[in-house]
Amino acid sequence: MNLFRLAGDMTHLVSVVVLLLKIHTIKSCAGVSLKTQELYALVFAARYLDLFVHFVSLYNTVMKLVFLASSFTIVWYMRRHKIVRRTYDKEHDTFRHHFIVLPCLVLGLLLNEKFTFREVMWAFSIYLEAVAILPQLVLLQRTRNIDNLTAQYVFFLGAYRVLYIFNWIYRYFTEPHFVHWISWIAGIVQTLLYGDFFYYYILSWKNNVKLELPA
């Protein structure tokens, strides 16, 4: 494992910790998209089907369990926790997330590395992850007061995607057999979606003002 991959996984982990910290300690999920969180839970459930079949390393197994557990915990908090659920901004979280699941599934059936159940689910999860941030970005645009933790959550999530691209470039030159067009193209699309957010995040950080995304 190279440094980019490790740094990517760690920023991913930090993003989840930041979000759980906000939800668990402040008991608020204001500005957080339940749609995006549900999509992530589905992404991890589909991708980590191989958890008990295909062993990579202890590191991989533990990280998979962490991402699975945390994503379902966040969804549980937002849907069921009696205090947290009241802070959910349902009116503005209107992205029709169900409608992007089916196209991703069809794409997974058509474009995969091997036509087996696990490989189709893997490809499906890659495509779904690429667009899963969309409801969150839409909600951020509609949120007047984006709190720091929410902004940092999205920032770390985006940083994780950028670092994964560096990881692939590194692996491409160091591991001649490492070619994953599906994850590379989907990953680049996913990272580009953060472009606008990054621009305004860095701007707000430089000028020391509260983050606000133009509608």
Binding site: D9, R47, H54, V56, E175, H177, V179, H180
Partner: peptide
């Protein structure tokens, strides 16, 4: 193109 089907990333 050789494809490494062992998905070792998260």
């Amino acid at each position: 193109v050789m494809v490494d089907i062992d998905h070792d990333e998260l």
